[in-house]
């Protein structure tokens, strides 16, 4: 088993955190993991992305160029990565911000209304967790409870009170996601 993942979007959308939590959860489940951010001369509002590899074998190249799971949070990321997804791979689109004009029929495409769900659970900042909930439930790359445990550790005691709303966002994200 080896999943090669790209998470991409605007800086500030929490794309690095999505990757980080997948990585952390994957490690806790006993897999080898690697997380590599893009670290170009980026600026606020610019693009951010990371490569994540989750494998039960030794990880060779940590750079992902042809993901089997691809998560895009904004339009430029979809434009950049649509054709990079491996045939048979899964593409998760943040449908709150992106209106796709083209679909590939050799991959599975999922539309995740991140902002709408985040608004529904009452905290707009959970939009990235809505996405993570959908990805975990649909791909099984990590278990949802492992991702929640990773988030709990990342939040620490000071922000522990935010766990329930994030958990709700993840569950509802999985529920509201539509396969194209």
């Amino acid at each position: 088993m080896e999943h090669r993942i790209i998470v991409a979007g605007f800086g500030g959308q929490g794309v690095l955190l999505i990757g980080n939590l997948i990585c952390h959860a994957g490690m806790e489940e006993g897999n080898n993991v690697a997380w590599l951010p893009s670290y170009g001369p980026e600026m606020r509002g610019g693009t951010a992305s990371c490569s994540v590899t989750v494998s039960d074998d030794e990880i060779g190249s940590p750079i992902v160029t042809q993901p089997d799971i691809c998560i895009v949070m904004n339009q430029p990321s979809l434009d950049k990565y649509l054709d990079a997804v491996q045939p048979g791979g899964k593409l998760f689109i943040n449908s709150s911000l992106i209106k796709p004009t083209r679909y590939r029929d050799d991959i599975e495409t999922y539309l995740v209304p991140t902002s709408e769900v985040a608004q529904e659970v009452g905290n707009l900042r959970t939009a990235n967790m809505v996405m993570l909930g959908a990805v975990a439930a649909i791909t099984g790359v990590v278990k949802t409870e492992s991702a929640v445990a990773a988030l709990r550790e990342a939040f620490g005691e000071r922000r522990a009170h935010l766990i329930p709303v994030n958990e709700k966002a993840m569950a509802l994200g999985a529920e509201r996601t539509e396969k194209v």
């Binding site: 980080n20 490690m27 080898n32 993991v33 690697a34 997380w35 590599l36 951010p37 940590p62």
Partner: peptide, 10 residues
């Protein structure tokens, strides 16, 4: 190299 510095692993 830049990658060894930036990569996160267990």
């Amino acid at each position: 190299d830049g990658m060894i510095g930036q990569i996160m692993e267990p």
